Amino acid sequence: MAGHGTPHFQNDAGHAKIEIGVKEFMCVGAHPPYDHPHVFLDMGDEAEKVCPYCSTLFVYNASLGAEETRPEGCIFEARSAA
């Protein structure tokens, strides 16, 4: 999970909807420097949640693992400073 206890997701591609396999997670927006405050989101009993910063709709999909997204590639991995 990219070195985090809670899965972090990003949306560099600007997807309107991202399916994820967890109900508690962090949204970072896009990779820095285009990120927004890293916000903890909890779906609770619901099956979807909209990020209040970037308006990405996250939808719970029980068939996905904690490190999987649909579309693929939306798990946040910190990039090293080069």
Rank of each mutant, 00 (worst) to 15 (best):
P71E: 00
F9T: 03
S63V: 09
L57A: 04
A66N: 07
F76R: 02
R79N: 04
P37I: 06
P7H: 00
E67P: 04
E24W: 04
H15V: 03
F58Q: 08
P33L: 12
P71Q: 01
L64Q: 07
S63H: 09
F9D: 05
V28G: 06
D12I: 00
E68I: 01
M43P: 15
P33I: 09
P37Q: 07
M1N: 03
E24H: 08
V50Q: 15
L41R: 12
G44V: 12
Y60R: 06
S80P: 03
Y34H: 15
G29A: 10
G5Q: 03
G73C: 03
G44T: 12
N11W: 02
A81H: 00
V28E: 06
F9V: 05
E48M: 09
T56A: 11
G44N: 11
E48A: 08
D42W: 11
K17Q: 08
H4I: 00
H4V: 01
A2P: 02
G29W: 10
S80G: 06
Q10R: 00
A81W: 00
E48Q: 07
R79Q: 08
G3A: 01
H36F: 09
K23T: 10
G3D: 02
Y53E: 10
A62P: 15
E72G: 03
G5D: 02
E72Q: 05
K17H: 06
G21F: 02
C51N: 11
G65F: 11
E46M: 10
I18H: 02
N61Y: 13
A30M: 13
H8L: 03
H8W: 02
F58T: 11
D45S: 14
C27T: 07
A47F: 14
F9K: 04
N11G: 04
P37L: 07
E46C: 14
F76W: 04
L64C: 11
D12Y: 01
E72L: 04
